[in-house]
């Protein structure tokens, strides 16, 4: 393995030294030694941009980047999503901001609680759609807003009917989810394994 000692150098010098060595000697594996974390990160980025796979190590006061060429060219390392094959896709459609009929105050409380508890469906919860009065749950001041934002942050796709927002003059007030249209909603219904209407 080719060793490159770039200690005592400030950015971008360690990257340039590594680059020069790769160009001149074309090593299949390199060990680059630097003396600070920023240079280590920069050398890692450079090696990955050149198709190396990298491992970072710390040895005493030294920071190492070990790079091996070959395998796959630089790919963004992302967490692999859980296998989706055997998961059901559940779509929940809320066309009201109240759950059930009778008492409106109770209905709102139930709705907020329902949305808060929805996460218990786990990864099978696939789409959450708001139409008609339901869009009022996605705006500033909605009691459900924080829970919806948390769901969205957890990776759930929340779709909010644009025609409805427009009708209530709430386009600017929406604070969660993507504005959507009827074609998206119909397509989602077709792809879903189960559609739950509230």
């Amino acid at each position: 393995m080719k060793e490159i000692d770039a200690r005592g150098l400030a950015c971008p010098a360690p990257v340039l030294q590594t680059k020069a060595t790769l160009q001149e000697e074309k090593p299949g594996a390199v060990k680059v030694i630097v003396d600070n974390a920023a240079s280590q990160q920069n050398v890692q980025r450079f090696l990955e941009s050149q198709g190396f796979e990298t491992v970072l190590e710390k040895q005493g006061g030294d920071y190492l980047v070990i790079g091996r060429c070959g395998a796959a060219p630089a790919v963004e390392t992302r967490p692999t999503p859980a296998p989706e094959a055997d998961l059901k896709k559940i779509m929940v459609m809320c066309s009201t901001d109240r759950m059930g009929f009778g008492d409106d105050d109770l209905g709102l409380k139930l709705m907020v609680n329902f949305l808060r508890t929805l996460k218990e469906m786990g990864p099978e919860l696939w789409r959450l759609v708001f139409v008609n009065n339901g869009v009022k749950l996605t705006i500033d001041g909605s009691e459900a807003l924080a829970d919806l934002q948390a769901l969205e942050k957890g990776g759930l796709k929340i779709m909010v009917c644009g025609t409805c927002l427009n009708h209530f003059n709430l386009l600017e007030e929406k604070r969660v989810g993507e504005t959507t249209n009827m074609l998206d909603i119909v397509t989602a219904m077709q792809l879903a394994d189960k559609v739950v209407n509230i």
Partner: peptide, 13 residues
């Protein structure tokens, strides 16, 4: 340039 590691140390700080 960022993808090539040409990032100033200040960015990491």
């Amino acid at each position: 340039y960022a993808a090539m590691g040409l990032i100033p140390a200040g960015a990491y700080k």
